[in-house]
Amino acid sequence: MVTMKTWKWMICCVPMLWADAACIRKNYPVPQQSADTATLWHYQTIAEFKANMGSSGSKSVNEAVIISGSVTANDRTGNFYKQIIIDDGTAAIPLLLDGYSLYTLFPEGRHIQIRCKGLTTQFSNKLPQLGYRLNSQGTLLPIPWQLIDMYITKGVPGSSPQPLRVRLSEVRKALPELLNRLVLIDSAEFSDTTMLQSFAVSPDLSSATNLTIRDCDSNTILLRTSGYCSFATAPVPKGKGSITAVYSVYNNTPQLILRDTSDIHFTDQRCP
C-alpha cells in the first residue's frame, strides 16, 4: 500500500534523480592522437653538425640531433660574454646562453650534451654559432637561462682540453675547420706598437681592443679583448713564447680570443 507520504517522497525524488542523471556525462571527447611521438635522437659530431649548417645564414634545427663535447672556453674572465665554446675533437662551436657566470655550471673541461632540436644555427660575421631562435631583426638569441636544462645535459667534469698546436703562418688566413677551436701558437709575441698597452682600453672608449700578435717571421694575427673582462687593465707581457686562445673570425679576418692571461707564456727573449 503506497501511502500519501510515500507519494510525496517519490515526487520529491524524481527531480532529484533527474538532476542527478543530468550530471552523468553522455558524450566523451575522442582522444586525439599524440602528435609528438617518441623522439628518436641520433648523435652527430660537431663537424657533421656544422656541415649541415651550410656556409651562411640561419637554420632551424628540426632534426632530433644530439651533439656533445667539452667546454673549452667560458665567461670566467668576462672575455667571452653569454656563450661557451664546445669542442668534441672534430670541430668546435659557440653555444649562446642567456646568463651570467656561466662558468659556474660549465667549467672548462666539463663534458656536455646538447639536444639541438628546436635550436637555431647562424653565421654571425661568418662565425658559426648555435643559439635559441631568431628575433624579429634576425639576430640569433641565446638560450634562455630558464630553459638551459631542456637542451643541455651536464656531464662529469674533465681535464682541461688540450689545444691544437698551429703555426701563425697557417692561421693568418681564416680556416673554417679551425673556427672556435682552442689553438696554441709558439714563438709569438706582441708587436712593438702594442708593447706599452694593456690588453684592452676602457670600455668607455671602446667595447673591445685589437692587439697584434706576430711571430719572428712577421706573420701576424689580431688578439681581440673585451674592455669589460677582468684582465683588461693588465699590461701585456713583453717577451716571446706560446699563447693559447680560441681561434675566431670576423668576416674574413681571423682573430684570437684569450681565455685568461695564464694562457700566455711570453717568457723568452723577443724576436730580433
Binding site: D98, Y132, P144, Q146, M150
Partner: peptide, 8 residues
C-alpha cells in the same frame, strides 16, 4: 625573447 618567455 617572447618565444623563450612562453616556453619558460
Amino acid at each position: 625573447n617572447p618565444q623563450g618567455a612562453v616556453a619558460a
